Simulated scan of single mutants.
Amino acid sequence: MEKLSENDIEKRLLHLPEWDYYDNAIHAEFEFENFKDCFSAMSRIAFECEALNHHPDWSNTYNVLTISLSTHSANGVTDKDFKLAKAIDAIVEPEE
């Protein structure tokens, strides 16, 4: 998997408004009503991660899920990260 240029990353992020690029990864933070809803979303995302064989750096604190995506073998962001980000966005509907 080939590392994307910063220009390519910024263009792709135009279609993923919840995500930002910094520290050589794309990042998003999602807030839920409670811990149960957050953990439920994480469980659904975990199945998608397994299907794509790509796993995020993530954490949750009560009702907030923080996700960072990069492809370690490419030392940066690749198409694989954007596929997973799109899948995550399809699962998670962040609160406004």
Rank of each mutant, 00 (worst) to 15 (best):
M1F: 02
M1V: 09
L4E: 03
E6G: 03
D8Q: 14
I9V: 10
I9C: 07
I9R: 05
R12W: 10
R12E: 10
L13K: 11
L13G: 11
L14Y: 10
L14E: 09
P17V: 11
E18I: 12
W19P: 04
Y22C: 14
D23I: 09
N24M: 14
A25S: 08
H27W: 13
A28N: 08
A28R: 05
E33H: 13
N34Q: 13
F35V: 13
D37S: 03
D37T: 02
C38E: 01
C38M: 06
C38N: 00
F39K: 03
F39D: 01
S40I: 01
A41R: 00
S43V: 10
S43Q: 10
I45H: 03
A46Y: 01
A46I: 04
A46S: 06
F47S: 14
E48L: 07
E48T: 06
C49F: 02
L52R: 00
N53F: 06
H54N: 00
W58V: 05
W58D: 01
S59I: 07
N60I: 08
T61M: 11
Y62F: 14
Y62D: 14
Y62S: 11
Y62N: 15
V64E: 04
L65W: 04
L65A: 04
S68P: 01
T71L: 06
T71I: 09
N75F: 15
G76L: 13
G76Q: 14
T78H: 07
D79Q: 08
F82Y: 02
F82I: 03
K83D: 00
K86F: 14
D89A: 12
A90W: 04
V92K: 00
E96Y: 15
